[in-house]
Write a protein that binds this DNA or RNA. Structure first.
Lengths: 252, 252
DNA sequence: CCAATAGTGTCTCTTAGACATTATTAG
DNA sequence: CTAATAATGTCTAAGAGACACTATTGG
């Protein structure tokens, strides 16, 4: 309406506090590689609900804090400030997902290089590493439950709906690994094509054809050869490449 | 983390009721086809802020209401109960996206058949139809701004960050149209292969190769031929197909 | 017959997988 | 020299675009 009232006067009169509001949190799937397996970093809960179970690191969103900033803050506070590629995953809003109160959580995928993963574990001793095992064999079409295991092979039961979040994280990553640039977030600045292929194989859980993989990656135009080579091998050293980011990016 | 206190303990003790909470809303991109163009349904704002501009239909999430239920309720209340395929898009949480107060909004994509689209327009007279024009020509790599136009060609400026939401909706739909089953949400129960191709071409904004399109769709195993044919044509009638949904589905 | 569209056959081009071969390093 | 892996060449198979051809309807 083209009322004569000024916008400032309208804003001053507006009363936002009329309904009970859900709490809003962010939860991070801190994902890296442990050997040839995808792995995540978890915190063991010591209180009800779900005491003893393992949960994704998370935190509430401040009233003056953007979602991405909240995710970055949780990364700083709970992962020892490790650098990571952050990407929004999905928002979980079932009413009873937390029995204490209504909490809507915006899940983020945080991809860590091997160095960042190790650094986070070293700087935040409460974190526990869990390898993510996709319950293959089950062909229940669309639903792929995941199991998280400690390094000794023991199952790490997850709290709340966090198993669902982890499953979605891995599914999303697998889906966009080939056509997008996310794979490079798991690699150091300089890497060989074999390392790149190892990352893809670990995430996808499959073996890939070497010549075809090289051709595809090189044809994508993402790779800058450096002319330098790895050292310390007892065999022919591979060339080191650098990732050349595309001009810009938006969520898709 | 300088404190000796465990993170889990901190989380458990933290009471967000002591802090101001952002409001949580859902916004719907009601998307259908108008002729050979993607189109959306909007509400013109009559108040500050952004008075006169057009906004996505939305509403606040109730304290005992799941996110999906809130989206379904908004669909009922503001789109005359039209049936639609609902799918979560992305969550927008910039601090200043609404000048009145902090509102985090979970955007949903609602896909309407041509009949549902017309029915919504008829039952909810406040809705206005806008065709979505992707600002092609701009090859700004990743960022594809959209323009929304009324049927008379006049520009419909969008409120808040809703242009960004619409742009993401179209980008997401385009991205998954070919490999997923979403395209069928825009078609009636019985349809011809030509209609299916028209939907894909309208969303993608490109022409597709007919034999290749038919082969691909039939090879996907999504289509059940009915043995029936369209009527009322002055040329050879096409066979009518039915969509055969896959066993289950999850967000990806 | 013609006009218009449905539906198909075939050719080519691109891309991926499979497999073999050459290249380079340490020892 | 051998062992191990990097990097590449080549063949084949699958899928998409291009294009022409046949099929079926109304008039």
């Amino acid at each position: 309406m083209s009322s004569a009232e000024s916008e400032a006067a309208f804003l001053a009169r507006y009363d936002p506090a009329d309904y009970a509001r859900p709490a809003v949190a962010v939860d991070l799937v801190l994902l890296g590689l442990s050997g040839a397996r995808p792995a995540i970093l978890l915190l063991q809960r010591d209180r009800h609900p779900h005491a003893g179970r393992h949960a994704l690191p998370g935190g509430f969103v401040g009233i003056d804090e953007a979602l991405e900033d909240a995710a970055a803050r949780v990364l700083r506070e709970k992962a020892g400030g490790a650098r990571a590629h952050l990407e929004q995953l999905y928002t979980f809003g079932a009413v009873e997902r937390d029995p204490r109160m209504r909490i809507i959580t915006v899940a983020y995928l945080a991809l860590l290089t091997e160095a960042a993963f190790a650094e986070a574990l070293a700087r935040a001793p409460a974190l526990r590493l869990g390898t993510v095992v996709t319950s293959a064999g089950e062909e229940s079409a669309g639903e792929e439950p995941v199991t998280v295991r400690a390094t000794d092979g023991a199952a790490l039961p997850l709290a709340f709906d966090h198993a669902e979040i982890v499953a979605l994280a891995l599914r999303r990553l697998r889906g966009k690994l080939d056509y997008s640039e996310v794979g490079f977030a798991l690699l150091p600045e300089l890497f060989t094509l074999r390392q790149l292929q190892d990352v893809h194989e670990a995430i996808l859980g499959t073996r890939l054809n070497k010549p075809a993989f090289r051709r595809r990656m090189l044809d994508r135009g993402w790779l800058d050869p450096t002319g330098r080579f790895e050292t310390g091998t007892s065999y022919r050293p591979a060339e080191l490449y650098r990732f050349r980011p595309a001009p810009s990016q938006s969520p898709s």
